[in-house]
Design a protein around this nucleic acid. Sequence first.
DNA 1: AACCAGGCGCATA
DNA 2: TATGCGCATGGT
Length: 277
Amino acid sequence: MRETALTIVENKEGLLITGINCFDLDLTLHCGQAFRWEKNENGRHHGVAFGKMLDIRQTAQGVLLSDTSTADFEQVWRGYFDLDRDYAALCDNFCADTGLKTAVEQFPGIRILKQEPWEALCSFIISQNNNIPRIKGIVTRLCERFGNPLGQGDFTFPSAQKMAELNTDDLAPLRAGFRARYMIDAAQKVASGEVKLTELENAPLDEARCELTKIKGVGAKVAECTLLYGCGRVEAFPVDVWVKRLMEELYPQGLPPCTNGSQGIAQQYLFHWRRQQ
DNA sequence: AACCAGGCGCATA
DNA sequence: TATGCGCATGGT
């Protein structure tokens, strides 16, 4: 983790951030790690995270954030977009491996979003045996129905405390299917403190995995996704059907050493690369 | 109309 | 410990 030299300039359109290396906003928001971003015309992306809405787009000058403030940029978006991680150095390391080199060169600029732990957990419970458009639909209905309104049709992601008060019948309108009871169980265990999500950021990885799999509907894959996307654990390595195929074909002995410590980031490049065939 | 989708729980051996 | 099947829902 290194301080990168970001420049923040306020203009009439919002906050212009320059000096970000290795950042493709479109890829990052729509590569299947987050489910609450919509791209509209003019290449603007609109979404909500950490209870804040954001309008963001990438131009030749840099990355332009609208409807936000410098305070929110520092407190929320800087961390969310992982802007203080040196992806150039990371990708440089990855390129020691020819497969990863191809993936990185073909899709440069993918970053791992640091999402809220509860949102990541709940979203990836919904993701199981499901496809991305439908995952987005379920998450959207969940937020509209049980989140707090932010105005202009935006809603926060509902808290675990709020969802712990609900039952599976309440979730029926979401059409989440068999996943509804898993969502309720997760909400109850998080709200009660039986599973302490904030402690997973620093716990030994195996211990963190073990904690998460206490929740019904959370197996190895969902636990790993929660750790990677929600707890900042970039060494977590989710293996879905795409990555499984890829591992069997390319890395039967396991990931190359150049990914050590950042296996989850390598995974995101490999996942996207393999899916684009 | 069968098959698939960023899996998991459960039964069976 | 290891496999196989059912699961809700919706899109091809």
